[in-house]
């Protein structure tokens, strides 16, 4: 794995706290103080009630596979030794009942591409790149 050569995340001023939490191996989302809606990715306003007040709250760290790709083409030379690799789009279990619609990307780790199917339960895994960066990846739950 050439993890160290991957593109690094460039946090913005809204997302910096999220990336800091990931660095501590904590998965968080924003919760609107105005209406309770959960929010990700990071923004400072709620698009339902337009409140600017929110808190960072722990996420369950579980979700379901919504879609995925298996990448074969070498789009980036630094990842040439990783192809083919899967990229998942996961809908978090948090807020799913009330349609809060929290989606996160990540690679599949500790699972087989052939086992991927829509709705597959997965759980978050924290992978440390180096002294500065940690990424959230996903593995089949249980």
């Amino acid at each position: 794995m050439s993890l160290a050569q991957r593109p690094r995340p460039e946090p913005d001023r809204d997302s910096a706290p999220w990336w800091e939490a990931v660095r501590r191996h904590e998965l968080t989302v924003q919760r609107c103080d105005g209406c309770g809606t959960l929010r990700f990715p990071a923004r400072t306003v709620c698009n339902r009630c337009r409140s600017r007040a929110y808190a960072w709250v722990p996420a369950r760290g579980t979700g379901r596979v919504y879609s995925w790709v298996v990448n074969h083409q070498v789009f980036m030379r630094s990842m040439a030794d990783e192809v083919p690799f899967p990229v998942l789009l996961v809908r978090l279990d948090d807020g799913a009942e009330q349609g809060d619609d929290l989606l996160m990307y990540g690679n599949l780790t500790g699972g087989d591409v052939a086992g991927l199917r829509p709705g597959l339960p997965v759980e978050a895994v924290f992978v440390d790149f180096d002294e500065e960066t940690t990424l959230v990846q996903w593995r089949p739950a249980g």
Binding site: R6, E10, N71, Q73, F75, M76, M79, E82
Partner: peptide, 14 residues
């Protein structure tokens, strides 16, 4: 981009 590129996901075919 910050939430996608680190996973090797950024190209239109993907």
């Amino acid at each position: 981009t910050q939430y996608q590129a680190p996973y090797g996901y950024f190209a239109p075919p993907q």
